[in-house]
Amino acid sequence: MTATDIEKANTSDLLDIIINQEGKVLVNGKDLSFLNDVKFKEFIYTFITNPDDSKERASSPKKASIQINHYNHPEQYKTYLTYIREVYFFLWNNEAQEKYDSTYNELDCKKRSKVQKVAPYRLFEAKNRQQNKKDDEPRFIGPPAFDGDVIDN
């Protein structure tokens, strides 16, 4: 997904997950840090599938979009990213069982693609700025950014 896709998404189809500076998990502005791993996965599953047609959840699994970001908590971020992926794998595996009487892993690429269309993996992740930097890039050397950075001798 791209930032443009996120901007175009209907607000009910978008789940915004932020792991803030305190390590709290905020989902659409609500603190859900108290949820254990199983309850969080159930929350994601319910958001995507929307079994009771709630207006606060995705209108369909095809339109469900998830945006995830963190502030200096990369390990916690990876954990929640894994939870989300496990939910999608569970959805795809169920669809593969229903449609092809086989597990998702046993399907060929064409069938996997068809199964994924039922609930496409629409996840937007912020890019890690540190990964994009190269150590061999020339660095700018010039005056300090702030007057306070200079110590008079």
Rank of each mutant, 00 (worst) to 15 (best):
residue 47 F to R: 15
residue 48 I to H: 13
residue 51 P to F: 15
residue 51 P to D: 03
residue 56 E to N: 12
residue 57 R to V: 15
residue 58 A to M: 03
residue 59 S to T: 11
residue 59 S to A: 10
residue 59 S to N: 11
residue 60 S to C: 02
residue 61 P to H: 13
residue 61 P to C: 08
residue 62 K to D: 13
residue 64 A to E: 07
residue 65 S to Y: 14
residue 66 I to R: 04
residue 67 Q to A: 02
residue 68 I to F: 04
residue 69 N to E: 13
residue 69 N to M: 07
residue 71 Y to K: 05
residue 71 Y to M: 08
residue 72 N to E: 14
residue 73 H to W: 15
residue 74 P to S: 05
residue 74 P to R: 10
residue 77 Y to A: 02
residue 78 K to W: 10
residue 79 T to F: 12
residue 86 E to N: 11
residue 87 V to H: 11
residue 88 Y to F: 14
residue 89 F to Q: 10
residue 90 F to A: 08
residue 91 L to V: 08
residue 94 N to W: 06
residue 94 N to L: 06
residue 94 N to E: 14
residue 94 N to H: 13
residue 96 A to D: 10
residue 96 A to L: 05
residue 99 K to R: 14
residue 101 D to K: 04
residue 102 S to D: 15
residue 103 T to V: 11
residue 104 Y to K: 06
residue 104 Y to E: 11
residue 104 Y to F: 15
residue 105 N to V: 00
residue 106 E to Q: 10
residue 109 C to S: 12
residue 109 C to L: 08
residue 111 K to M: 09
residue 112 R to L: 00
residue 113 S to V: 00
residue 115 V to S: 00
residue 115 V to F: 00
residue 115 V to W: 00
residue 116 Q to D: 13
residue 117 K to G: 09
residue 118 V to F: 15
residue 124 F to A: 06
residue 124 F to Y: 13
residue 125 E to C: 00
residue 125 E to K: 00
residue 126 A to Q: 09
residue 126 A to N: 13
residue 127 K to Y: 14
residue 128 N to F: 02
residue 128 N to G: 09
residue 130 Q to F: 04
residue 131 Q to F: 15
residue 133 K to Y: 15
residue 133 K to P: 05
residue 134 K to L: 01
residue 134 K to T: 08
residue 136 D to R: 04
residue 136 D to Q: 03
residue 138 P to A: 01
residue 138 P to N: 03
residue 139 R to H: 14
